[in-house]
């Protein structure tokens, strides 16, 4: 099985704080992989590494065997960016532009297509995500779910080989969230690209995942397919699946130290 992404020994700091502590994992090509874990465990940080937004302190990331963390030559990273799409947590549409202009943006910047051709592609992409007829709307005029759909249309503009999603259902009602899961499944089925989704919503995971990566506190605690994930005996996985709260254990000594601040 071919791997789309190979991460080895990724270490990242924000200031003095270590966020990713030596993450190594492979993500298979052509599947839907979910990256799960509790809030603040470093999922978004890992995603930002995978799309080349931030550089790791150490470690490497291979995307289809090209190293995107290499210093110096930026052209490989530039090439990669034209072949991937990202849906950010808040959709991140440019608020000063209409939906159609947003979707057209990567096409205008990276291709020499004529305006009428771009218009047709834009309409196709908006139709794909169920937003036909909304091209002239501004992001501020749309609901959260529609913004995310528009974000997906923009991410799909260049027909990406890898599509990334950061918490697609965050902040949405369950029905809209399910609709988005449905859309992700359909896109994957039709276009057969590699899909990588960051999420912590159990229903989403069960609906869309082929493959699961679980992070905890900046470390990988599980990698494998969905069935193995569901059957895993690891306490940390079981706690996540059963929605059990973390056990907080304070020894009296520790507690004394905390309240006296020593």
């Amino acid at each position: 099985m071919e791997n789309a992404v190979e991460v080895s020994n990724l270490v990242t700091y924000y200031g003095d704080r270590q966020i990713l502590k030596g993450v190594s994992l492979s993500i298979p090509a052509g599947m839907t992989t979910v990256i799960v874990g509790r809030s603040g465990c470093g999922k978004t940080t890992l995603l930002k590494h995978l799309i080349g937004l931030i550089r790791p302190t150490s470690g490497t990331i291979l995307i289809h065997d090209t190293d995107i963390t290499a210093e110096g030559d930026q052209s490989q990273l530039e090439q990669y960016r034209k072949k991937m799409g990202v849906l950010f947590q808040g959709a991140a549409l440019l608020n000063s532009m209409t939906l159609a202009e947003n979707v057209a943006l990567p096409l205008k910047e990276h291709t020499k297509l004529k305006a009428p051709v771009i218009d047709i592609i834009v309409r196709m992409k908006l139709d794909l995500v169920g937003l036909s007829g909304f091209g002239d709307f501004y992001p501020a005029q749309l609901s959260g779910g529609m913004k995310k759909r528009a974000g997906i249309a923009r991410a799909m503009a260049m027909d990406p080989k890898i599509l990334y999603f950061d918490e697609p259902s965050a902040g949405l009602d369950p029905v809209t969230a399910a609709g988005l899961d449905e859309l992700i499944l359909r896109l994957h089925r039709v276009f057969k690209m590699t899909v990588i989704v960051v999420t912590h919503e159990l229903p989403s995971i069960f609906a869309i995942a082929d493959y699961v990566v679980m992070l905890d506190n900046g470390e990988v605690v599980f990698v494998g397919n969905l069935d193995d994930f569901k059957k895993s005996e690891k306490p940390i996985v079981k706690a996540f699946l059963e929605r059990r709260p973390e056990e907080v254990s304070y020894s009296p000594d520790n507690y004394f130290k905390i309240i006296t601040g020593t």
Binding site: K48, I51, V86, G90, N95, P106, R154
Partner: peptide
């Protein structure tokens, strides 16, 4: 609002 990140990620 991550719009700058979005621009960068689109190359």
């Amino acid at each position: 609002q991550e719009e700058i990140d979005a621009l960068t990620s689109m190359g």
